[in-house]
Amino acid sequence: MNLTQTRPAADAVAKDGRGKFPKHKLEELRGRGYVMFCVLLLIVIIFSIVYFIASRGLTPFASQGVSVGEMLGGLKWSPEADTPRFGALPFLFGSFATSLLAAVIAAPLGICAAIFMTEMMPKVGKNILQPAIELLAGVPSVVYGFVGLSVVVPFLRDVFPGQGVGILAGGIVLSVMILPTITTVATDALRSLPAGLKEGSYALGATRWQTISRLVIPTTLPSLMTGVVLGIARAFGEALAVQMVIGNAPHIPHSLTQSAATLTSIITLSMGNTTSGSLHNNALWSLALILLIMTFLFVFVVRLLERRVKHA
């Protein structure tokens, strides 16, 4: 074929009769530009949030005489005293205690529900149980807090000594809130398991429970742990529901039924009563910075677990 004959055809494909790009080419360029703009905007927003919180949260350590050791290891929080104290250890303890307790309660329930929906009763689980569990994710936090205050706290008050508010009440409320996250991630992990593995196990004479306990769970364990870590991260950042049932006392409790406080609860309770730029206000931003760093650590753990799944 003559090259001089193919050149005009190529030009006709690249441009129309008026020397312009075809319509689909322009649409592709517009779409690519829109996507790049959204990505850049998202990056700018994330870095702006991190910079704003870090700049406010580091001010007490840089110019207002508060030490990092005092905030992370101190036991007394009295910002309005003649000698202000900013010990945040009780809030760190309360956040970790309620989040871990919620994970201990919700993880077995969520994983067992996922096993039931995928391995035992897949049709019933997919059509009835899974939508019911996912509906819990759409319930507002204030509703969980109100139910906890109306049901969980009186029940604990009648069963255990004390007022009913405390880490146990907060852990129970949070466990219900993170149950959809753990169940959904576990269900997706179990359904992504190749069917040939289970069929091979059944062909070798293994029972259903032997296949689940010795093959399915060990194989999908990193993905199951990813759901648990995401649930802990969700519980760690919850504010309103925990604030309503934990008691908000700035000390380390000696039992699960005593009042406590979390990072989120002390921030939401105190931020509106402080003046912007004051030492107390900046100390609360320091707590927000600690909360942000813990969130990044949870995301880092999730990434490690996902990488382990890919390499498995």
Rank of each mutant, 00 (worst) to 15 (best):
G227T: 05
G227R: 04
G227Q: 07
G227N: 08
V228Q: 08
V228M: 14
V228S: 06
V229E: 02
V229C: 11
V229P: 06
L230E: 01
L230W: 03
L230T: 05
L230D: 02
G231W: 07
G231I: 08
G231M: 08
I232Y: 03
I232Q: 06
A233Y: 02
A233K: 09
A233D: 09
R234W: 12
R234P: 06
R234M: 08
R234V: 07
R234C: 06
A235P: 06
F236I: 12
G237Y: 04
G237H: 06
A239L: 00
L240V: 10
A241K: 05
A241D: 03
A241G: 05
A241V: 02
A241S: 13
V242E: 00
V242H: 04
V242K: 09
V242Q: 04
Q243H: 03
Q243P: 00
Q243G: 12
Q243A: 10
Q243Y: 02
Q243W: 00
M244T: 01
V245F: 04
V245T: 00
V245P: 01
V245R: 01
V245N: 01
I246S: 06
I246R: 04
G247Y: 03
G247L: 03
N248T: 11
N248E: 12
A249E: 14
P250S: 07
P250Y: 09
P250H: 07
P250C: 04
P250N: 09
H251C: 11
H251A: 15
I252L: 10
I252D: 11
P253E: 08
P253L: 03
P253I: 03
P253Q: 08
P253Y: 04
H254S: 15
H254M: 12
H254P: 02
S255H: 10
S255G: 14
L256C: 09
L256Y: 08
T257K: 00
T257I: 13
Q258V: 09
Q258P: 08
Q258H: 14
S259Y: 08
S259N: 15
A260D: 10
A260V: 06
A260L: 08
A261Y: 02
A261D: 12
A261R: 02
T262Q: 11
T262F: 01
L263V: 12
T264K: 11
T264Y: 02
T264I: 02
I266N: 06
I266C: 04
I267W: 10
I267G: 11
T268D: 01
T268W: 00
T268K: 06
T268P: 00
L269S: 15
L269Y: 03
L269T: 12
S270A: 10
S270D: 13
S270C: 04
M271G: 03
M271C: 03
M271F: 13
M271L: 13
M271I: 14
M271E: 02
G272F: 04
G272C: 04
G272M: 02
N273A: 14
T274N: 11
T274S: 13
T275I: 11
T275P: 01
S276L: 09
S276I: 12
G277P: 12
G277N: 11
S278H: 11
S278M: 10
H280W: 14
H280V: 03
H280K: 15
N281V: 00
N281S: 14
N281D: 14
N281G: 02
N282Y: 10
N282R: 12
N282P: 07
A283D: 10
A283Q: 09
A283M: 14
L284F: 10
W285F: 15
W285A: 15
W285R: 05
S286I: 05
S286L: 08
S286C: 15
S286D: 13
S286E: 13
